[in-house]
């Protein structure tokens, strides 16, 4: 039985081993909460790979179902180019409809991947959907001259106008997503625009498919497409209405605001009523979407990593001071209401168990590592850990308070690397490179797991340096900052 001290109440918290490998935590209020424990096995669960493959296969099958369905209806062929164009149109529509499911933050389907991976896939697969959606009319115009009259949008029949509306909305959606920053679109404004345009693209596309009639004449096929349309609409309603309603029943309250030396802010939250909901079972290294507002329908949700132990009742987020959202976080006061949607992400010790851990972070990139280290400390874990921290100045290190609390509770070596140190600084200087890592890491370095969290360029540089030391690629796990 592990006994830990609760930071906020300074009362002991009892952490007991649980048969499932999770931990049963008895809170000072008398409630019990099951927390996922850090597994000590050397291999990740084999089931995760199979579940990933199954979800990917399901995505593929649902995307191909409309084409398969249309085979049930015998009809005369219209030549390869026209048929290929139609196939592209069907695939574009179903893949675009499925984008709602990928972005809906469903816990079960996201868990084997991590929502960050699912959102990256959402972005990457959109390029196929756009190519297919634009390829569909282009091939038609190439195949048959008579289709070119449809270019006259004003006098074209309704079915073609629906198609134009869908394609134009899709074009606008792509432009505003790829060049959001260049267009100076704020994240919340982009988010609303993205949702509205997505619904327009799919509904107009469905309207077009129904009005064309050539492929959807069969009642069974029409019924299947109507079901498809209903699912898309349900997904939109679920994400925008049902999910916020469910989250509104689990409000959180700000209990501490702690300005970090580097300019970041640590926000400590607890359930607004201890009887309303019991804690937040997350794995150290994961993140959650946060909404600093009393209104759960406000679309201003943003993802941030937890920085506290996953075994505590209170949850901390450490947030860097950039952008308009963090300005709204700055306006938070103790006692304010916030909502939390999560946890999400697969950048965790459970997903990559090992004999010891090396963490490499820059600035606020320390956040997931603070959570991992605090959790390991609460579990009494004595596996060796190394933390390499890059910062500009030695007096601007995010997380120093939390690191000080961990002293003596872990087998941890912290290496501060300062790029612009003062004259008094006697520690490491410059950047984290192969030579620096080589000086501090043990000879049995190939058996450790490596986690990197920093800006994109530094993540690449550190990954390269680690590979230069002979660390296998499957032992290097990285995350970089970057808004969609």
């Amino acid at each position: 039985v592990t006994v830990a001290l609760d930071d906020t109440t300074a009362r002991p918290v009892f952490v007991e081993p649980h048969p499932s490998g999770h931990r049963l935590e008895r809170l000072s209020s008398g409630h019990r909460v099951v927390r996922p424990g850090v597994t000590t096995s050397r291999r990740a669960a084999p089931a995760a790979g199979a579940r990933r493959a199954a979800w990917l296969l399901l995505h593929l099958l649902v995307a191909l179902a409309p084409l398969g369905l249309s085979l049930a209806q015998p009809r005369p062929g219209r030549g390869f180019l026209v048929e290929f164009s139609v196939a592209l149109g069907f695939v574009a529509l179903s893949v675009l409809g499925l984008q709602f499911a990928l972005a809906a933050r469903f816990t079960r389907s996201n868990a084997p991947f991590g929502i960050d991976v699912v959102l990256t896939y959402h972005r990457q697969i959109s390029f196929l959907a756009v190519t297919a959606a634009f390829g569909h009319p282009l091939l038609l115009f190439v195949a048959r001259d008579r289709y070119r009259v449809l270019l006259d949008v004003v006098h074209a029949p309704l079915r073609a106008q629906c198609a134009w509306l869908s394609v134009a909305a899709l074009g606008l959606l792509m432009v505003t997503s790829i060049w959001r920053k260049a267009l100076r679109l704020s994240y919340p404004a982009w988010h609303v625009l993205h949702s509205v345009l997505g619904v327009v693209v799919v509904l107009a596309g469905l309207g077009h498919a129904f009005l064309v009639d050539h492929y959807l004449g069969e009642p069974l096929v029409r019924l299947a497409w109507a079901l498809y349309g209903a699912v898309f609409v349900w997904l939109a309603v679920w994400v925008r209405l049902i999910k916020p309603l469910r989250l509104s029943r689990r409000p959180w309250r700000v209990v501490e605001l702690w300005p970090e030396p580097g300019g970041s802010l640590t926000v400590g939250i607890e359930p607004a009523s201890r009887h309303a909901h019991l804690g937040f079972p997350f794995k150290a290294g994961q993140f959650a979407w946060i909404l600093p507002s009393r209104n759960p329908f406000n679309p201003n949700w943003h993802p941030f990593s937890m920085s506290s132990s996953s075994l505590r009742f209170r949850v901390d987020f450490t947030i860097k001071n950039v952008g308009e959202f963090t300005r709204s976080v700055r306006r938070l006061r103790v006692g304010d209401r916030v909502y939390v949607d999560g946890p999400h992400g697969s950048f965790t010790l459970e997903d990559h168990p090992g004999m010891g851990y090396v963490f490499v972070g820059a600035g606020v990139g320390i956040t997931p590592f603070l959570s991992m280290l605090a959790t390991l400390a609460d579990q009494g874990d004595r596996r060796p850990c190394w933390l390499f921290l890059a910062n500009r100045h030695e007096d601007q290190v995010t997380g120093v308070r939390q690191l000080a609390r961990l002293q003596g509770r872990l087998n941890l070596r912290v290496v501060h690397v300062i790029s612009r140190p003062s004259d008094q600084w006697s520690g490491e200087r410059g950047r984290i490179d192969t030579g620096l890592l080589d000086r501090h890491l043990p000879l049995e370095r190939r058996s450790l797991q490596y986690f990197t969290c920093a800006g994109g360029e530094m993540v690449q540089a550190v990954d390269g340096a680690l590979r230069g030391l002979g660390i296998p690629a499957d032992r290097i796990h990285s995350e970089h900052f970057g808004m969609v």
């Binding site: 290929f84 990256t120 697969i125 943003h302 992400g345 970089h480």
Partner: peptide, 30 residues
């Protein structure tokens, strides 16, 4: 905010399978 993972292989694979199916479908339909 973090986005990680090696997802491009999955996206390429899905895209390739979808396009291949489109090709076969249109060959069968023509």
């Amino acid at each position: 905010v973090r986005f990680s993972g090696r997802t491009s292989a999955a996206a390429w694979l899905t895209s390739a399978v979808l396009l291949l199916f489109c090709l076969l479908w249109s060959l069968a339909q023509r």
